[in-house]
Amino acid sequence: MSGAAVSGGFLQRARNNIVRAFKYRKVKMLNSFMLIVLGFASIYPLYYALLASLSTPAELSMSLLLPIPGQPFASLSNYALVFRQAGLIRSLIITMLRIACNFAVVVLVSVFGGFAFARMNFPFKRFFFLFLLSTMMVPGVAMMIPNYIWYNKFPLLGGNNLLGEGGTGLVNNLSIYFVTGWVNVYNIFLFRQAFTGFGKELIESARVDGCGFLRTMFFICIPLVKPLIIVLLINISVGIWGDYMTNIVFLRTPETSRWHTIGSKTIELANYYSDKNRVGGADYPKAYAIMMVAMLPPILLFSLLQRQFVEGLTSGAVKG
């Protein structure tokens, strides 16, 4: 970029420019090289865990920077074994269900809510808008205990009556996976911004052609914001897949903790396999196999949808 001569025809200046351009290219190559090397270094856990999961315990305990599996294919049985026991499949199923349910609801809420705030007139619009905006200030993390107390008293759920007495509400109740996290105000505003940007003409013309509200939503609006929906899909999947807190805070009895989602189940199993007091001693390769199960799916999903994800991010989020 900086290679072109700026002005003047002096030989000296031209030469300087060439030298600088040459240096710059060198710097640039060095920069790229460094970024790629450091980038690979930053995903070290990924291939460490992969190699470790394919090693024998002895190989692993002698390894230094990276374990070198002698017979990687024989050790694939580690994966077969961890999948066969201890409820990993059960946990996978409930995690997938939770992602699917949450994704469906959040897409509907965000698209409809975003559209309503961008393109519709209704009473108290400004009040609702400012109300939702102000709830964004409530810090989710500090609400752990108040949430616990409230979920415990949640009316009409988990054996509670209307006043929230008699049962445990959403605490120690698997429905907590499916009824929380429906409304994400940030997402609503993201979609609102996208719909504001599209202009009225398209929706107006659909209406002239006889499209009702719901048909306009499903056949015009949702396809328009597909990149943003991909962003939601990735964020929700990654978030729920890795969710640890919901499990350990709200599902605390043995009957419910059997159903913990992957984010907590994999930690529990990794601890179990790495415990040296376990029958048969610690088996680190299996613990690392468990960690691979926890790490890989979000990365695969992201790599598959990466292009649309970046498109979605740059189309909507950045304008704000």
């Binding site: 930053s42 995903i43 856990p45 990924l46 990654v238 897949w241 890795g242 969710d243 640890y244 984010g263 907590s264 994999t266 930690i267 960690m291 926890a294 790490m295 979000p298 990365i299 992201f302």
Partner: peptide
């Protein structure tokens, strides 16, 4: 971007 996809717990 990959490390950000792995859960904090793991």
């Amino acid at each position: 971007y990959i490390p950000g996809l792995i859960s904090m717990a793991i």
